[in-house]
Each structure stands twice: as structure tokens, then as C-alpha cells.
Amino acid sequence: MNELVIMHDRQAVTTSLRIAEVFGKQHKDVLEAIGNLAAENSAAKFFAAGTYENRGKQYPMYYMNRDGFTLLAVGFTGRRALQFKISYINAFNSMETQIKTGYVIPGSYAEALKLAASQAEQIEDMKPKALFADAVATSHTTILVGELAKLLRQNGVDIGQNRLFKMLRDQGYLINRKGSDWNMPTQRSMDMKLFRVKETTIGHSDGSVSISKTVKVTGKGQQYFINKFLRTNEPQTA
């Protein structure tokens, strides 16, 4: 959970776990402070008990809205604490603005899928597949080409990983020249921001080091190729 503020039960909240991490405090101390605040009837409504999982076990935590955060953080002092408070205020403002306008930007691939499903229920005259592709484009998650092939199959496109690689090479999205850059994105694809290349350094027993390159499809690339295939697969009218 990297976001300072998340959406939970249709409101902008943060968690005691995230507070402890950001402000450099022991989670048990944050829980104790919240427990003391929640014991007051007037403050209890700002906090909601929850749990998180760690190594297969469930542990307690709290969700809190802006007012709960304000009550908790008022005693946090120091220059860094002030900077973190400002960051939190900005994060709350941003999330609350998104909620008011009815559009919350997904922060993960799973959230993008949920957004697509929600949109499909609300807007009957739009195709769910197009909504899915639009939601994916806002995600910051990159996926492998093989995972893109699975998504396409789930949306009615009969294609596998090898056939998708071949199509991407044949149509100039990936390099078709044998060698170290085989299956790497072409300059055209990189300019279109359809792919990213992840480089991993590998150390060998003889002391040598090599670099492994993995092609990942960006959110924009996922939308681009899903829309491309859906248009191709649409039935033609006379």
C-alpha cells in the first residue's frame, strides 16, 4: 500500500499502518493513540476498525478519515512531520476531489478492472470491453506480452503468446531482426509509449555480470492493443 490516502467505503481514508510507516512510529503506539481517541464518543465516528494480513496472520489496524487523521497527527511535531502532514492534506484533497467528480483514478491493475466493471453497470449503451480498455489505460501497472495475450483471450480474441509476439513483430511494434534486440520494442513503439523495457542485472559464479531485458506492456499499450483487436474482431455490416 504505497498511497497516502485510499478510497474505502466510498470515502477518502488512510490507515494506522500507513501513518506508522510514513511518520516513523511503532504501529502499536499508533494503535494505542487511536484507541484513546476512539474512546471519546465525539471522535469515535472518525475511526473504523480493520485488519491487515502479514505472513498469513491477521492483525488489527484502523481506517480514519481526514478528521481522524487531523486529530491523530496534531501531536506529531518536527520539520519532517510538518512536511508529511502537508503531503497528507494534499492527498486527501486530491482523493476527495476525485470522489466528488465521480471519477477515481485506479492505482493498480485490479482497481482498473473494478472501475471498468462499475462503469459497465452504470452506462448500458457503452460496450464493457471498451470500458475495460479505457480503465486499463489509467493504470500504472505494466504486464508481460504473455499476460496481454491472456487478456485478449478473455475478451474473445483467439490468440496466444507466440502468435501475439509474431503479430507484434510483423506489424512493426517489436524488432524482427535476429540478435540481442530480438523482440525488443521498435523506436516507433517507444515513441508511442506502448512498451517499457525492464533491465535486470544478473551476477554469475565466475564474477561476470549480464543484463536481462524484459519487455512490458504499459497501461496505454494495453488499451491500444485491446482496442485494436476488438475493432478487428467486430462483425462487419453490409
Rank of each mutant, 00 (worst) to 15 (best):
K127N: 09
K57S: 15
Q122V: 00
T14N: 03
A117W: 01
F23W: 12
T142M: 03
Y59D: 07
M167Y: 11
Q26D: 09
Q83E: 11
G50H: 13
A44Y: 04
G50P: 05
T70H: 06
N183D: 10
I211H: 15
T232P: 00
V22H: 01
I159P: 03
T14F: 11
K198G: 05
A238M: 08
V136C: 01
K216V: 02
F92N: 07
V157Y: 10
L31R: 04
E32K: 02
A137R: 09
L31P: 01
L82K: 13
T186A: 10
L4I: 06
E111R: 12
G35W: 04
R18T: 12
Y88Q: 01
A33P: 00
N41E: 12
G56H: 04
A133G: 10
P185V: 09
L31Y: 05
P106F: 10
T138Q: 13
V215Q: 09
E124N: 06
E32H: 03
L31K: 02
G146A: 08
I89A: 12
E3D: 15
N90E: 15
G146Y: 01
P106R: 07
L152C: 13
N36I: 14
V136R: 00
G156Q: 11
N65P: 00
A48V: 05
G50N: 10
D170S: 13
L113W: 00
F92T: 02
D29S: 09
A81H: 12
S94M: 14
N36E: 15
R79N: 11
A20K: 01
D191I: 06
T214E: 15
T186Q: 05
P185E: 09
Q26V: 04
G203M: 12
F225N: 12
R66I: 05
Y173V: 02
E96I: 09
K213T: 13
G35M: 05
Y88V: 01
M190G: 02
D206H: 14
T200V: 10
F23T: 13
P235K: 15
E53K: 04
S180C: 06
